[in-house]
Structure formats: C-alpha cells, structure tokens
C-alpha cells in the first residue's frame, strides 16, 4: 500500500500554500531556528521530523504565530500563506489562527461539555447565526474527526471525561470546526496508545482532502505512514526537505541518514 501511495504522490503536483523564507527564531539568547526556508503544499500532509529540541515544534508554532504568546520569543524572516505575509503589522493573529488551526501534543479539551468544546471556535468567530446552524457545525466537525458515533449521545457531558484518544479526536474536531485552511499538528499522537494513534492517523489521511496538514512527529514510522512530504530538522536548521519516500529511502544528507538509521536522535 505504501508503494501505491508513493506513486500517487509523485504524480500529484499541488500549489504552494505556505512559503517560509529565511526564518530565524530566538528565545532570549538561544538561537532556536536558523535560517529555515520551506514551501508547504496545499492538500498535502507534510511531516516535520528530527531529534528532540531540533526546533520542529518551534517552527510549527511560527506558522500560526503561537510564539507571539511567549514574551521572550523573537521571529525574523518571512512566512506567507497564500502569498500574504503573516507577520505583517496589519495582520491580526486572531484572524490568522482562525485560518490556521492547531492540535497539540497533549489532548487539551476545555473543562466544558463536548458540545461546547466544539462550538467554542464557531462561537467566537461568529460562524453560526442560529442554534441549528451551530448544531450542524458541531455534528459535521465531530463526524469529520470520526468521533461522532462515540459521543453523539453524551454531547452535554464534560470533554475531560473522554479517553485519551477520544480527547485528541475531540480536539481535532474542535480545530476543524472553525473551518481552517491549514491544520498544524504538534505530535498529536505522542500521548496516545497504539489503537488511538491508528485512529488519529487514519483521520489525518482523510483530512488532507480539505486541508494542508503539517504534522510534527517523533516517530519516523508515523511520518512515513501519513505524510507525502517530509522535512528533517537538526539543531535548528532544516537539513533536508522532499518527498517522504525519497527522504526515507535515499536521503541526500548524511545527518538525515544517521537519524533515519537511528544513529542520532
């Protein structure tokens, strides 16, 4: 199946959704991201891999300006989504984040009901005019996140009462409810057991039909399973970026090869 998918990928040339050029990030005195440039395609799953502390999560958080919430972070360079510079002073990060959703490492449902968790985004962005519309959005999002059947009878119960895998899928439903164009996922399966991981991975594969998905992962197997493009980060630099199949079978850089074969990381 993997082979088949690789063929499919190669033939499928898509337009660029996100383009980053010469991005540098400093946390206080630490130079966390060093001159990273990358083009991320629409309707594709792109995986960021690399050893811990290599800057892959930091870079991911630049794409929806989550680093703005950290006082000591400083970002230079230029990141464009659909050709618009997201660090332009005129851009409101709130609007940007509605367009670029995010799913986090640890499932973080709000201490509210399942319904309110999913309805939170649509409510703050005003996506529903009536209760019926809101109900519809919530149902659609939960269906997309493949959790509707499990929770449809207990929408008013707290989201924190679900199992880990369900919580993470709830968070994905919450993210897709605002109808983003890009979905960033920061190690979405690291806190989940293998069964839940399989469910989420299946979901990611579905999601790429509508979104540009960027996933940070620790697991190379996961990157190989779900992504079409892979970027390898090491010590804050982007070492190699290309088709997932190429990266795993014939890496150009020796560091990538060392990582893939388990010598560093």
């Amino acid at each position: 199946m993997n082979d088949m998918r690789r063929i499919e990928r190669a033939t499928d040339m898509k337009e660029t959704k996100i383009s980053a050029r010469h991005v540098n990030v400093h946390y206080g005195d630490t130079h966390a991201i060093k001159d990273v440039s990358v083009e991320i395609q629409d309707k594709t799953v792109t995986a960021f891999i690399g050893p811990s502390g290599c800057g892959k999560s930091t870079f991911l958080r630049c794409i929806n300006r989550m680093n703005d919430t950290i006082d000591i972070a400083r970002i230079d360079g230029d990141i464009r989504i659909d050709g618009e510079d997201i660090y332009d002073p005129k851009v409101d990060p709130v609007q940007l984040r509605a367009k670029v959703g995010m799913v986090f490492q640890k499932p973080n449902p709000f201490p509210k009901s399942i319904f309110d968790n999913v309805a939170y985004g649509p409510r703050i962005h005003g996506l529903a005019r009536t209760k019926a519309e809101l109900d519809e959005i919530v149902e659609k999002s939960l269906r997309r996140a493949a959790i509707w059947d499990e929770v449809k009878d207990r929408l008013q119960q707290p989201g924190t009462g679900l199992s880990g895998g369900q919580q993470q899928r709830l968070c994905i439903a919450r993210a897709v409810a605002t109808e983003p164009e890009v979905l960033l996922m920061d190690e979405p399966c690291s806190a989940l057991d293998p069964i839940a991981t399989a469910q989420v991975e299946e979901l990611i594969d579905e999601l790429k039909q509508n979104y540009s998905v960027v996933i940070v992962t620790h697991s190379m197997q996961q990157a190989a399973r779900v992504s079409q493009k892979t970027a390898f980060f090491h010590l804050g630099t982007l070492v190699e970026y290309g088709e997932t199949g190429d990266i795993f079978t014939k890496p150009e850089d020796s560091r990538t090869e060392s990582y893939i074969t388990g010598r560093i990381g």
Binding site: I86, K90, V91, V94, Q95, L96, K99, I124, E179, P180
Partner: peptide, 18 residues
C-alpha cells in the same frame, strides 16, 4: 472554506472582538 478574505484586512467581527 467559507472565509477567503485577505489576512491583511480585518473584518468587522474581528474589529469588534478587538
């Protein structure tokens, strides 16, 4: 996606929220 507006111009709702 429903909203295709540019990021560079804030819409009404965002202005109100801000």
């Amino acid at each position: 996606p429903r909203r295709n507006g540019s990021l560079l111009t804030a819409d009404d709702r965002t202005r109100r929220r801000n």
